[in-house]
Design a binder for these strands. Structure first.
Lengths: 143, 143
DNA sequence: TAGTATATGCAATTAGATTGCATTTGTCAA
DNA sequence: TTGACAAATGCAATCTAATTGCATATACTA
């Protein structure tokens, strides 16, 4: 499968939110756009190392935070005591986590949106985002 | 308002899951049953101190973990980098977190259950629990 | 009430994440 | 193309949440 985004696309993405393009930032965006499951900081560091992009761990945390601020990525918490992150372009789904094997599956077509609109109207609040995760036992682990 | 649960009830609750009744455990269950918002370990420690129940922090972490195992409480993550906990008897709702003032509001009557059953059938997975949180701006902070 | 399994306290340690400050680097204007 | 400057990074230290090992204390059963 061909990469959906190129280095050039990542640069544009960064420029659009007034961030300088650095190897670490491009690498992190690439990682999150390529990978199908939400990544934690440790995984990002490994990815960068594999690509021979030298970065300090602190910098990865800082980059992740600024990408969050700019709305390019979203945070995901799967009950692990740490954050994972997903590129905004693939955040239109939710997650199922198997409590036995820790596999993460995507759950699509949850029309929470309708529910969300009702809640906003009823409560007078503005909902910017939501997080929905399902925990249980996957098909493989049921045997 | 009268307390819904007494110390005696907490003891029974513990006995039912084969746990010894200790002051710390009873205090923690009380705290979680009384309070209307999910509590983190730090809050539990403060609660116990106020009740003059002397416990080490480690013990609170350990108690929380065993209560989770036994299914008496559920974990909640509100994007803070730490866990909060809610008593199982009041876990039938979801949460809205204001990104400005950090207020936590309860959201009820989300019939996720129907959705959940559909997903289970379609995917062949067993869903044991889910977590649903909404993030945005509360009514007060909109001005 | 004594015996025993269980729970707790204390000290040390780990992992995730943040901060301050000095240095380096990307970008834009000339 | 280059130089200037704001922005980004590296390094060291620090913080908070959470866990572990081991010795001691406590709750519960017989």
């Amino acid at each position: 499968m061909k990469d959906l985004k190129t280095k050039h696309d990542c640069k544009k993405e960064l420029r659009d939110v007034f961030l300088k393009s650095t190897p670490a930032r491009i690498g992190i965006l690439e990682a999150l756009e390529k990978t199908n499951k939400p990544l934690d900081v440790a995984s990002l560091i490994i990815y960068l190392k594999e690509k021979s992009i030298k970065v300090d761990n602190v910098t990865v945390f800082r980059i992740v935070n600024i990408l969050l601020e700019k709305g390019l990525i979203t945070p995901i918490q799967l009950g692990e005591g740490k954050f994972r992150y997903e590129h905004i372009s693939k955040s239109d789904h939710h997650h199922f986590i198997c409590e036995k094997c820790n596999k993460i599956e995507d759950i699509s077509n949850c029309n929470i949106d309708i529910l969300e609109k009702n809640i906003q109207k009823k409560k007078g609040i503005i909902i910017k985002r939501h997080s929905l995760e399902f925990f249980g036992i996957c098909q493989n682990c049921q045997n």
